[in-house]
């Protein structure tokens, strides 16, 4: 089990490691939506440790299990033309290996 690097309230940035167009760049199955890559948010909670879905998709064990976080983003930062309230939020589950310090 990989230890958690972040805690509730920490600022984190989602990696842009696998941009669009790199169809054959491994891993081929990721659970980090494209729209949230490169965005900065705040850890809402640590959900626990779970097998890496990118490895599970390759029929591997996905172990050691990775910390999974719920990360909270401000909608008006994710979408520059966001129409709604400035306080609106978006919360996304992201595995630790996709997160870095902003």
């Amino acid at each position: 089990m990989i230890p958690a690097k972040f805690k509730t309230g920490d600022r984190v940035k989602v990696s842009k490691a696998y941009p669009v167009g790199h169809v054959r760049t491994p891993p081929e199955h990721v659970r980090t939506p494209y729209y949230i890559r490169g965005q900065v948010g705040e850890v809402e909670r640590l959900c626990g440790n779970f097998p890496n879905p990118e490895k599970l998709a390759e029929m591997l064990s996905g172990l050691p299990a990775l910390p999974l976080y719920r990360v909270r983003f401000r909608q008006n930062e994710v979408w520059p033309d966001y129409r709604g309230s400035d306080s609106d939020l978006l919360e996304v589950e992201i595995f630790q290996h996709w997160l870095e310090k902003p």
Binding site: R31, P33, C47, Q75, G84, D88, L89, L90, E93, I94
Partner: peptide, 15 residues
């Protein structure tokens, strides 16, 4: 209403 915060939860992994 705009005075109410909308929170969207994207169920991307194990939760």
């Amino acid at each position: 209403g705009k005075e109410i915060q909308v929170r969207v939860h994207d169920s991307t992994a194990d939760m």
